[in-house]
Design a protein around this nucleic acid. Structure first.
Lengths: 162, 162
DNA sequence: TTGACATAGTTTCAGATGAAACTACTTTTG
DNA sequence: CAAAAGTAGTTTCATCTGAAACTATGTCAA
């Protein structure tokens, strides 16, 4: 992949030339696909978990007790995915539930003991993976990358809305 | 989203705390989701194209005549997706084909006149979108971002393989 | 040659996905 | 308070996906 090349350059005709391989969204996709693939290796094979199940577990692991809606709000997943992930985690006995006195439509969820065991096995592996992913970058570069991603994401979100 | 926060920090217990919202792959997903969403708006509604159809068209648009395998090699899509995208584009008359004398298993593909019209409508919009996405960044920052994404992607790919 | 293996592209199958409809409960309004 | 409107969570339905099987053709080696 050639980072230095520009996406466009004008040929003889009126339409600018276009190279997918230099197109920013394409580079973003290649980047994300690789990062995502590295992470999924940690929860798919060893625990038979799917993408949304891991994300849901990650949210539950860091909070004492919360509803499905809280998970949706905290994770930028849609409620259908969260609902299914909860069903799957519950099916393995990884979630403990109790009634929500404030609202009978929902329940308060947390990781069960066995769920927490899985979580506490995964978390150090996730942290180690993150460190390996970013091992070639200095702390400054890591901060720069995160900040630039956030700025572009904000631009993209603004383009969608208005 | 808090960029300055670290993913991990140690609490009282042995397991490090973990915050999904600061986890690098999570940030990468949010970033990619927004960027990808901005792009898909350009080809989905106006032309009824799907993700893989746009990518296939983008590849075909920049090459004179190529086989499906060539598209696979150039795009990091899998051959099933490319096959289906070609079928869809062909169904709209956007692809012109001729026999491949060198190998009868494949055909040589290029955009038809009407396919090229769509392509030449989309390309300037894509370039404009890319510029808007990156408008807040200096040229230096854009180069930095692309380079850092590539380095992390390479690390991730290396982690998967070995 | 010709049989064994490899490759190009398509189809099948078994999930993954999300929008919309739906059920149950809650809040608001008249 | 009762009806209307809203919200939490689930299910349905209509794709979207990709791995694996499959068909047709090509290549290699004896």
């Amino acid at each position: 992949m050639d980072q230095s090349a520009d996406t466009k350059s004008h040929g003889a005709a009126g339409t600018p030339d276009f190279m997918l391989q230099a197109f920013f969204p394409y580079l973003a996709r290649v980047f994300y696909t690789h990062v995502s693939g590295a992470v999924s290796g940690l929860y798919e094979e060893p625990f038979g978990m799917k993408r949304y199940e891991w994300r849901t577990m990650a949210i539950l692991g860091q909070n004492p007790a919360m509803t499905a809606s809280d998970i949706v709000a905290a994770s930028s997943m849609d409620k259908v995915s969260v609902s299914r992930a909860i069903t799957a985690l519950r099916g393995r006995g990884w979630i403990a539930e109790r009634a929500n006195k404030a609202d009978a439509r929902s329940r308060l969820l947390r990781l069960s003991r066995s769920g927490r065991e899985v979580y506490e096995t995964l978390v150090p592996q996730m942290i180690a993976l993150e460190e390996k992913l970013l091992a070639d970058l200095s702390d400054t570069e890591i901060g720069t990358l995160k900040a630039l991603m956030a700025r572009v994401a904000a631009s993209a979100a603004a383009l969608r809305d208005g």
